[in-house]
């Protein structure tokens, strides 16, 4: 299976990554359910990172480009951070829905909000590590 090794493999991964990314984008734009959109967003992320990796493999040198790997890893971390923030937001928004049915739970809001902030801070300092 010559095609699945070396240059050829990279090309396949490139195509696969693009397909995944496009599919995810379509779903992200069309889905109504918030959670589905969040998942679709992650799918786009994985597709794009796949494209990046295949680009690295296409490079002529034997070893994959370290800078590209770093790029992919950073991209992963950031996508995770965004996913976390998105999940918190979705939980809150769904919380309003629930609260409309059971008004007593409305008081939860503040508690969640402080939790959200500390997790938020964690993620930003993770990126900061790359900066310094």
């Amino acid at each position: 299976m010559e095609v699945f090794a070396g240059e050829g493999a990279a090309l396949w991964y490139l195509l696969l990554g693009s397909l995944v990314a496009v599919a995810g984008t379509v779903r992200l734009l069309l889905a109504r359910d918030l959670l589905a959109r969040l998942v679709a967003m992650n799918v786009v992320g994985i597709g794009s990172l796949l494209v990046l990796l295949s680009l690295g493999a296409r490079a002529e040198s034997a070893a994959p480009d370290p800078v590209l790997s770093a790029l992919v890893i950073t991209g992963l971390v950031i996508t995770v951070a965004f996913t976390g923030l998105g999940a918190v937001l979705i939980r809150r928004i769904e919380g309003i829905h629930d609260a409309e049915h059971a008004p007593d739970q409305a008081a939860d809001g503040d508690q969640i909000s402080s939790g959200q902030n500390s997790s938020e801070q964690d993620s930003s300092s993770t990126e900061g590590g790359r900066d310094s």
């Binding site: 990314a21 984008t25 992200l28 967003m41 786009v44 992320g45 794009s48 990046l52 923030l85 998105g86």
Partner: peptide, 14 residues
């Protein structure tokens, strides 16, 4: 905003 920002970032990253 989050969805848009992530989509934009990924395009940029590629």
């Amino acid at each position: 905003y989050l969805f848009v920002a992530v989509l934009g970032s990924l395009l940029f990253l590629v």
